[in-house]
C-alpha cells in the first residue's frame, strides 16, 4: 500500500520504561506507524498507553530504545520531532485564570510558530469554542476544557497528533463532530494516534489497532483483518417450529438451541477452510427442520479485546 521508501510517521524500537520506583511500565515495545494512519491504542487501565505516548512526546524519559518521528531521532533532533507532534494529554490541566484565546496563542508561540490569529480563529470555531474565547478557563465546563486542550495541541499545526482519551467527558454530538474533524485532519496528511476506552470508537475510527497489556504490545493489526482473523461468526436460524431438543446428528457440533427451542445458533470461525455452514444446511433439510429466517453476526472488536486481554 505505502511505497517501501516512505519514512514512517513513527518508529519505535525496543522502547522500555522503568519508573523511578522500580515499576516497569513498558517492556520492549516495537511499533511502526505509517504517515496518514489512524492508529488506536487499546488496553486496560495501567497497561502503559500514556507512558508510551509520553515517552514519544518528551514527557517521560525512556529507559531504553529508539524513537523516530518522521525520520528524526527524538533525542538528537528533539526540536524537529516535537515540532511535528501535537499532544492532547489524558489529564486536563489548565491555567485557570488564562483566557481561551491567550492560552491557545501561548501554545503556538511556545512551539515557535509565528502569530496567526486567523488560524486560531478557525481552530476555535471548528471546536465550537469561539464564543468562549474571552472566558477564563475556570469558567468552562469539563468537556469545553478538553476541547481547549485539543485546540492547544493543534495550535502549531502538527503532523503527528496524539490523542490520549480525547473523548472522555465529551458529549455525544460533539464527540461525533470531533471524529469528523479527526478524519478531516487525516485527509490533510496528519497521522493520528489515539487511545480510548470506548472500543466502538476505535472500531469506527481506526485503520489499525494495537493492544497493550502489562506494558507489552500484544498485538498490532489492521482493523479489518483483525476482525476477520479473530472474529467468530454466528449463524442464527429462527425455526418455524420450536424443537424440544437438538437432533442427535447435530450434537457435538458448536451449535446451541436457544429461545425455548425457537432458535439455533451455530458458531464458526471465519478463517476455517470449511466453515461447515453448507453441511449444516443439508442436515437441516434431511431432518426436515424448517426455518423462518436466517442471519449472521460477527463478534465486535470489544469482544475480541476482552478475549485478548483476558488471555494475557
Amino acid at each position: 500500500m505505502t511505497p517501501p521508501d516512505k519514512t514512517p510517521a513513527l518508529e519505535i524500537r525496543g522502547l522500555e520504561k522503568t519508573y523511578q520506583n522500580g515499576f516497569q511500565a513498558l517492556k520492549t515495545v516495537d511499533l511502526t506507524i505509517q504517515t496518514g494512519e489512524i492508529f488506536a491504542l487499546l488496553g486496560p487501565n495501567g497497561a502503559g498507553k500514556t507512558t508510551l505516548i509520553n515517552a514519544v512526546c518528551g514527557i517521560v524519559r525512556p529507559s531504553a530504545g529508539q524513537i523516530q518521528v518522521c525520520g528524526f531521532d527524538h533525542v538528537t533532533h528533539y526540536r524537529n520531532t516535537r515540532d511535528l507532534i501535537g499532544l492532547v494529554p489524558q489529564e486536563i490541566t489548565t491555567d485557570a485564570f488564562e483566557t481561551v484565546w491567550n492560552t491557545v496563542r501561548f501554545s503556538r508561540g511556545l512551539f515557535g510558530k509565528p502569530r496567526n490569529d486567523a488560524y486560531i480563529e478557525t481552530l476555535l470555531k471548528r471546536l465550537s469554542l469561539w464564543d468562549k474565547k474571552d472566558n477564563q478557563l475556570r469558567m468552562l465546563s469539563g468537556g469545553m476544557k478538553r476541547r481547549v486542550m485539543i485546540a492547544k495541541a493543534l495550535s502549531h499545526e502538527p503532523q503527528v497528533l496524539f490523542l490520549d482519551e480525547p473523548t472522555a467527558g465529551v458529549d455525544v454530538t460533539l464527540r461525533s463532530s470531533m471524529w469528523d474533524q479527526v478524519r478531516e485532519l487525516r485527509e490533510t496528511g496528519v497521522t493520528i494516534i489515539l487511545t480510548t476506552h470506548y472500543i466502538e470508537e476505535a472500531e469506527e475510527m481506526a485503520d489499525r489497532i494495537g493492544v497493550i497489556n502489562h506494558g507489552e504490545l500484544i498485538l498490532t493489526e489492521n482493523k479489518k483483518s483483525l476482525m476477520k482473523k479473530l472474529g467468530k461468526k454466528e449463524l442464527v436460524i429462527d425455526l418455524a417450529q420450536p424443537l424440544t431438543e437438538l437432533p442427535a446428528s447435530l450434537a457435538g457440533k458448536p451449535i446451541q438451541l436457544l429461545q425455548d427451542g425457537q432458535q439455533l445458533v451455530y458458531t464458526y470461525d471465519t478463517l476455517q477452510e470449511n466453515n461447515g455452514v453448507a453441511e449444516l444446511m443439508d442436515e437441516l433439510k434431511t431432518q426436515h427442520i424448517r426455518f423462518k429466517d436466517i442471519s449472521t453476526q460477527q463478534s465486535s472488536l470489544e469482544e475480541i479485546f476482552v478475549q485478548l486481554v483476558g488471555q494475557a
Binding site: 512526546c57 518528551g58 514527557i59 528533539y78 520531532t81 489529564e91 490541566t93 511556545l110 512551539f111 515557535g112
Partner: peptide
C-alpha cells in the same frame, strides 16, 4: 503543581 508543565516538556524548546 497544576500539571501544565507537560506543554513545556513537549515543546521544541
Amino acid at each position: 503543581f497544576t500539571g501544565t508543565i507537560y506543554e513545556l516538556l513537549s515543546a521544541p524548546i
